[in-house]
Write a protein that binds this DNA or RNA. Structure first.
Lengths: 350, 350
DNA sequence: GTGAAAGCGCTAACAG
DNA sequence: CTGTTAGCGCTTTCAC
């Protein structure tokens, strides 16, 4: 008889008691070892660990949560299950919840129910009896929602909060630094004629990425050319028209840096529609590493956010926040690092 | 004091006991009402339900799972967290798990660790002590993996299993019927000159969709034209080259039906690169409604699978399978219906 | 350092 | 139909 037959059906076969018996100690000692309590003697710990391994024991999360009374019910507030973001968020959050013994509860806030908007979202969250919530993009940009959560005193951690909003614990990347990092890489590949497609200016990320572009140019001493800066709204189509516009400038840039991957993909399509090659004639780089980045051809060089790490960290922060007796204790606004992903859409000029 | 302050910290405030006290019955009666036991008198049930509402009581899943001993640890075996599929799978599976009191455990099977292949996946699953697993695409096409699960007697439910594989309970859509449905819609929109881009022939779905295309043509009495059938491998790039090929035929089809959205998107790009308009000159339709379908411009008319419902059903089936004492009981192979999504890439000729 | 006892909130089994 | 009793597997509390 092996594990899979024992677990699941009715009772769990190997419990802390059996481990205790085999190791010749009490359940408590096993529990202490499991929880890395410092007080256990080295010798005892060894015996217990051996027994655990011998029995292939795995603690029962249900029991642990029940007894500890620490289990949190964490709501994940989202409004778009097809978001390229959300699956990685789920993976990160779910794994962290599992290891911390918490519950992840999904709160679907799609706004297709008319007028069931922010207010009712907050009400629903309050009524659901959740310990706290994770607010993820694009909902996290919604100041009204955040105000509602604050008013109701619902513990929340915000992933990618609106500009300057530091009243909630948050996890984000530094969009400006990330855009700069991409620019530095372009410089290194020998590019200096770099055009930029801006994103929806209502979004903080768009503004910061644009700022990073400008900062990098300035640092390198390259003058800003207005005809190489185009507006966009984060959509594929806007990327197409922006690229058309950029290509009609007297000088052609050697790279187009789009504020997100959708627009970058649109730019690629527009360039190809003009009979030009990517990256031979014009390189294109994006931002986000969303699924379209590796879906199109040529595949996009882009900036990747550590999304599941962000979610994982957010769960930690929420647990801290809920656990702390002092609700006014210091608010952590964490910033995680990004990664440049090199694919086919960027040509090295060196 | 409201709910959120009570829940989460240490003990849960409103328990079944308080409900019982308020309703003037025993805990058991409350429990019966909660579990929709038929034996409770209507009158009693009313009282209890009122108390539940008055106290805003919500059962503690941890306790329920522990006491019931029914809680399953369901592994979700995936190999690509960015898959357009997986977030909806997660949403469906997670919600179903929550309502049934099960645990969803993620099993990341990305194969970037060399040689940590099928074998070790099965081993890991066995070692993790899971009650059973959900196998989702594209892993679900992997017969070797499935054989491994079978050999180890690990209960599994397969979403979109390989052709003819009915030894595991499964949930799928009828790809052939779905392709036919799309064809019928094209006919209704006045199209008869329909080209097809085939998918990776190793995959069951690709073959069945192609079959649906042929079946529909035959039923309508339209001859099959080989020059309007192109090969593809499910990738964007293959869609581009397939479309090029199709466009070079002496007669231009009025629609290109691609076996998935990535190829359809590639086809759109190729058509546009030729200086033609979609859908004015050529319409394009896809299959899957993956994120690229609504991401590009024009947005793609396509076939949508009820992915989260499929996951939800899969969890149910797994619970049944694990719960049944007779492992050789009848295996359910469920087929769910699809939906046609009309967007911009298809022109109506009527 | 370690152990014994007492629950966490709920449900299974058996009474009544 | 409803209540009583006894745990589920673990951690907390408080002894030793």
């Amino acid at each position: 008889m092996n594990v899979k037959e024992r677990r699941g059906q009715r009772r769990q076969a190997v419990t802390i008691k059996e481990v205790a018996d085999l190791a010749g100690v009490s359940q408590m000692t096993v529990s202490r070892v499991l929880n890395n309590s410092e007080v256990v003697r080295e010798n005892t710990r060894k015996k217990v660990e051996e027994a655990i391994r011998a029995l292939n024991y795995r603690p029962n999360l249900l029991a642990r949560g029940l007894a500890g009374g620490q289990a949190l019910f964490i709501g994940l507030v989202y409004n778009n299950p097809s978001n390229s973001y959300i699956s990685e968020i789920l993976v990160g959050a779910l794994n962290q919840c599992r290891s911390m013994g918490h519950y992840l509860v999904l709160e679907d806030c799609r706004s297709d129910e008319r007028h069931a908007d922010q207010r009712s979202v907050v009400e629903r969250i309050a009524a659901a009896g959740l310990s706290g919530v994770l607010v993820i993009p694009p909902l996290s940009e919604d100041n009204a929602l955040l105000d509602g959560l604050r008013a109701q005193d619902i513990p929340a951690v915000v992933i990618a909060p609106p500009q300057g909003r530091t009243d909630f614990p948050s996890v984000s990347i530094d969009d400006e630094a990330a855009a700069e990092a991409m620019m530095l890489d372009l410089f290194e590949q020998g590019h200096t004629d770099i055009a930029f497609i801006r994103g929806d200016e209502a979004q903080n990320a768009a503004r910061r990425r644009y700022r990073g572009y400008l900062t990098a140019l300035k640092a390198k001493g390259i003058p800003v050319r207005q005809e190489w800066i185009a507006k966009g709204d984060f959509n594929y189509r806007s990327g197409m028209s922006a690229a058309m516009e950029l290509l009609s400038a007297p000088d052609r840039p050697s790279v187009i840096f789009a504020c997100n991957d959708d627009m970058a993909a649109g730019a690629v399509a527009a360039i190809q529609a003009q009979g030009l090659k990517v990256p031979a004639d014009v390189s294109v780089v994006g931002f986000d590493d969303s699924s379209i980045a590796s879906g199109i051809w040529p595949t996009l060089t882009t900036v990747r956010q550590p999304i599941s790490q962000m979610a994982s960290r957010a769960v930690e922060l929420l647990a801290e926040r809920v656990g702390s007796d002092d609700p006014s204790s210091e608010v952590v606004n964490a910033t995680l690092g990004i990664e440049l992903v090199h694919r086919q859409s960027l040509q090295c000029l060196n």
